[in-house]
Amino acid sequence: MNFFQSIGHSSLKFLAKLGRSSLFFSAILTGFGYTLSRPGLLIKQLYNIGVLTFWLIAISGLFVGMVLGLQGVYTLSTFGAESSLGIMVAASLVRELGPVVSALLFAGRAGSALTAEIGLMKATEQLSAMEMMAIDPLKYIIAPRFFAGFISLPLLAALFSAIGILGGYLAGVELLNVDSGSYWSQMQGAIDFHDDIINGVIKSIIFAWLVSWIALFEGYDAVPTASGISRATTRTVVTSAFAILLFDFLLTALMFGAS
């Protein structure tokens, strides 16, 4: 009996949290106009969220691309198909690795920082103080951070893919002497603008929405104590990772499964 009770208890808790987070999200949306009217706030958050994640994404992208290049050459050379290296590197980066890996890195770097920041603001009563000054913290604090995250991640994912493709070029063409012409031309022949690039961008937009939402909600919903904030930060990274991978599967099935 206790077993079923605990299942019931946790599912009710989950539903309640889902409801709270939906209300939270709709409140963020009403802050959209306010964010637009305060570009200064948005720029500050674009710096905190986007620019500070830039190097992490750029360097990770380079190495992931180089590894793809090396592994690709080793595998493809058994079929004598090194000339298809460009397709392999670009397709895997643009469709999957670019959006997914950059979203995971983003959740670890920017998402956890957002949760900790908002949780700490809650613990030190800064959010309450704002409410008492008749300033809605959802508009002033949360909304600019959400939209900054929502803008940053798709841009970072594009950067990740582009640098990864250059990394694959470095490893495959410069290091292992794959033909430079076939690297690019095979790639251009096989990668479709709509099916691959646009779908990849759509994926990263959805991941951006997920990660920003989860990170900010966990911070806002955190128990305002030291241990509560650390648990919320952990939850942000774990939940984001789950959500990214689950949605990646769903989106891939929708986008690439049909054809």
Binding site: M121, Q126, S128, A129, M132, M133, A134
Partner: peptide, 19 residues
């Protein structure tokens, strides 16, 4: 409510200054 709160000031225990 927000209009009413402009007539209220509140001093929090921790100060609650924006850091």
């Amino acid at each position: 409510l927000y209009k009413l709160r402009k007539k209220m000031g509140m001093l929090f225990q921790s100060g609650a200054l924006l850091t």
